[in-house]
Computed example of a mutant assay.
Amino acid sequence: MASASAAPPSQHVPVLWAPVLDGLAVKPAGTYLDGTFGRGGHARGVLAQLGPEGRLLVMDKDPEAIRVANALAADDARVRVRQASFATLGEWPEAAGGLDGVLFDLGVSSPQLDEAARGFSFRNDGPLDMRMDPTQGMSAAEFVNTADEAEIARVLWVHGEERQSRRIAKAIVARRAERVFERTGDLADVIAKLLGRGDGKTHPATRSFQAIRIHVNAELDDLVAGLEAAERALKVGGRLAVISFHSLEDRIAKQFINERAKAPPSNRRAVVEVAFTPRLRDVSGAIKADEAELAANPRARSAVLRVAEKLAVPGAAA
């Protein structure tokens, strides 16, 4: 049985691999859910620590990720697979018996970024899609070609924290009146021409692409729903591990844990003080990649891991 200090799978380098496995504190007979299977790096780490009675439940929106997960399940009877957002984990009967650990590795995966046909990256020109599941919902092209200027600006500001959101939205609407957007490179060029190339370290379209991707995949709404579903599904003593890659995601995860782990500031004006009962224990605070991991995997630089443990609440079902 592998330990968390063992080397990660060679075919894919999962971010914060050892800290995730340490945080989950895998029990050999436990049931664990990986809500973002990707190519299975973290999942295989959990599986290596499970005994014959253990179970690994994996979810993902991405059909290619599910193909890889099904191949894993075909070779290992301990694995169960469901193609869906982790926001719906509470609807999966396999998870109804209670979970000993839940992992969310948020954002877009390296294979998705590297495959131009998925349309996630402006660095590799491809169809302007960006959907985790290409068969569901509105594509990025549909959004930028049909949404009104105010809605585009709102999405860029709220989901991308893009200060030039209004200027970019105006430029998008003006350009699509001449010719609709179909390619990632086309949208990136319009934004770059408007904003300039800056210092060259960060492409000027970075925040806009992030914002549009988050919007078309409903990522932040899914995260809120997924965290609540995970808390309900976890057994007492079960662990929740969340890897975030930008401040919006991390803020949601941090607030979710803090609200359940720490008493709110006292309100002197309150007639009756409401007693606070913690439902989670903050196990780790913010964990980031060390220098060795950053040297091997520069994409880990923005990753933040938070781990919480579910506590027993008097009068509540375990």
Rank of each mutant, 00 (worst) to 15 (best):
1 M>H: 15
4 A>N: 09
12 H>D: 07
13 V>I: 14
13 V>K: 07
19 P>V: 15
20 V>W: 02
21 L>G: 05
24 L>C: 06
25 A>C: 09
26 V>E: 04
28 P>D: 13
31 T>D: 02
34 D>C: 04
40 G>S: 12
40 G>I: 04
41 G>R: 00
42 H>A: 03
43 A>Q: 01
44 R>N: 10
47 L>F: 08
49 Q>F: 06
52 P>S: 15
54 G>D: 09
61 K>R: 13
62 D>V: 14
65 A>D: 01
67 R>H: 12
69 A>E: 04
70 N>W: 07
71 A>G: 09
72 L>N: 00
72 L>M: 14
74 A>N: 10
77 A>Q: 06
80 R>N: 07
83 Q>W: 03
84 A>Y: 04
85 S>H: 08
85 S>I: 11
96 A>F: 10
97 G>T: 15
99 L>Y: 13
100 D>F: 10
100 D>M: 09
103 L>Y: 01
108 V>W: 01
111 P>W: 08
112 Q>K: 04
112 Q>R: 02
119 G>L: 07
120 F>A: 10
121 S>M: 05
124 N>H: 13
125 D>N: 13
132 M>R: 04
132 M>W: 04
134 P>H: 08
140 A>R: 00
145 N>C: 10
151 E>G: 09
151 E>W: 11
153 A>P: 01
155 V>Q: 02
157 W>I: 02
158 V>S: 12
159 H>V: 11
160 G>R: 00
161 E>F: 05
162 E>P: 00
163 R>K: 10
168 I>D: 02
168 I>A: 06
171 A>W: 07
175 R>N: 08
177 A>T: 14
178 E>G: 12
179 R>Y: 06
180 V>F: 11
180 V>T: 14
182 E>M: 05
182 E>R: 13
188 A>P: 00
190 V>I: 14
194 L>N: 04
195 L>H: 06
202 T>C: 05
203 H>C: 08
205 A>C: 00
209 F>C: 08
210 Q>M: 13
214 I>A: 14
217 N>D: 11
218 A>Q: 13
225 A>F: 03
231 E>I: 11
235 K>M: 07
236 V>S: 01
236 V>N: 06
238 G>C: 07
238 G>L: 05
240 L>C: 08
246 H>S: 05
250 D>Y: 00
253 A>K: 01
255 Q>W: 05
256 F>D: 00
257 I>D: 02
261 A>R: 01
262 K>R: 08
263 A>P: 00
265 P>L: 14
266 S>R: 11
266 S>A: 14
267 N>Q: 13
268 R>F: 15
272 V>R: 13
272 V>Q: 10
272 V>T: 15
278 P>D: 15
280 L>H: 13
283 V>W: 06
285 G>W: 06
296 A>H: 05
297 N>D: 09
298 P>N: 12
300 A>H: 06
305 L>H: 03
305 L>Y: 02
308 A>P: 03
308 A>H: 06
315 G>P: 03
316 A>D: 05
